[in-house]
Design a binder for these strands. Sequence first.
DNA 1: TACATGACTATCC
DNA 2: GGGATAGCCATGT
Length: 107
Amino acid sequence: MATPFQESVWEALKLIPPGRVTTYGAIAAYLGSRAVRAVGSAVAKNPYAPQIPCHRVVKADGTVGAYSGPGGQKSKIALLREEGIPIEGERIVSFETYLFDFVSEEE
DNA sequence: TACATGACTATCC
DNA sequence: GGGATAGCCATGT
């Protein structure tokens, strides 16, 4: 069942521009909370898998984290590479360069 | 209502 | 740098 919190998370995901990534913590901050665990759960349950760019959400240390969609993490990495984000192993190269910060970059 | 769980994060060794 | 531990909030049983 989609709760208001989950919908808020999904809305936040749509704000992420192509070729950029964000973290669970950034989303939580954008929602005015520190519920990073809840954000992860919400993203994992998103019913709009292809519509929501959930593959642009990575962990705070620069690693891609997990992915529930088809292909799992492997597919997630492939999608990010297609958007121009270089990934070495499970970690994004120049992570901070591609990081999208909601609070700082939104107008 | 209470307990257990998770696409996490920060800290300590 | 890598592994283990504690804290965290929302959700499902």
